[in-house]
Amino acid sequence: MIPAPFAYARPTTVDEALQAVAEGGDDVKILAGGQSLIPVMRLRLAAPETVVDLSRVAELRGVRDDGDAIVIGAMTTHADVLRDPLVQQYAPLIAEATETVADRQVRARGTFGGALAHADPAGDLPAVALALDAEFVLAGLDGRRTVPAGEFFVDYLTTALGEGELLVEIRVPKLAGEWGMRYEKFNRVAQAWSIVAVAAVVRRENGHIAEARIGLTNMGTTPLRAGAVEAALAGAEASPEAVAAAARSAAEGTSPSSDLNAQADYREHLAQVLTRRAVAAAAGL
C-alpha cells in the first residue's frame, strides 16, 4: 500500500525542525529513520497531515564524549551506533542489543532516537536505556529539558515528549567501577521483535553483587525495571544460586500481554529465565 498524501518538510537544523513541527498543523509526525513510521503509514494506521523528515539534520547524528556521559544523537543510525567506539567502550549493552534489532537493512536506516521515541514495548532499546539510567534531552521552541529514562516511557507507544517537542539526544552515564552487562532476548527466528528480553547491568565488588539494574522488554505497555530482583541482588553473593533465587521475582509487578507469540504466564516464565541468564552473564558467572 501507499501512504495517504501528506505535506513534507525537510529541515536541516533542530530550530528549523521545531518550526516545521509547530507550523505543520494538528497531526504532525516526525520521520527519523522511518523504519516503524513508514510501515505504519503504508498500512494507513497513521495518516499525518505533515511529515517532518529529520534525515538532513546533521547536528542530531553521532556520538560524543561529554565527560561523565556519552551523548548519542537521536538520529544516529543503529548501524553507526554498533560501530561506535565510545558505545563499545562505555555502553557495550547498547551495541549488544542494537545488533539484535530487526535486520541489516533496517539497522542501516533506523535510528537510536527514533526507536526510543516510538516506544514499542517489544523494541529492544527502551529497556536498555532504562537499565543504563539514560537521560533524554528534549527540545522545544521554549528550550531544552532533560527527562530520566524512568519517566520517559509513559504508556503504550507514548512517551514524555510533549506537543511540538523533539528528542534530540540521549545521555548515557559512564559507569564507575567494575560493571558487566548483558542483553538476553527471546524471539522467533524470522521476527526480530522480542517476545521477552532482559537487559542486565551489574556491579561486582569483593565477590558480591554491589548493584544490579535490570530492564525488562515487553513485560507490559512500557519497559520496566525489575525492582524486586534488583533489591534481592543488592549485596548478594555473586553465585549462580543467589542469582537464580533473585531471578524468580523477575515478573513481580509486570503486566505482560498475551498474543499469538506467547501467553502472559509464558512471558512471566521467560522473564525469570532470561533474568537469571542475563544477570549471571553480567556478573561474570
Binding site: 500500500m1 513534507y8 525537510r10 520521520l31 522511518g34 523504519q35 513508514i38 510501515p39 503504508r42 498500512l43 523528515d53 534525515s55 548501524a79 535486520d103 541489516r104 537493512q105 533496517v106 542501516a108 536506516r109 524470522a190
Partner: peptide
C-alpha cells in the same frame, strides 16, 4: 511483502542496503 519483512525490494542507497519499500523517494 509490502510490510518491510521480506527484503525482496532491497537496493543500495548511498552504499548501504535498504528496503526500498521503507524509504520515501524524496529521501
Amino acid at each position: 511483502c509490502d510490510t518491510s519483512n521480506c527484503g525482496a525490494c532491497t537496493v543500495h542507497l548511498d552504499g548501504a542496503a535498504v528496503k526500498s519499500c521503507t524509504v520515501l523517494a524524496v529521501q
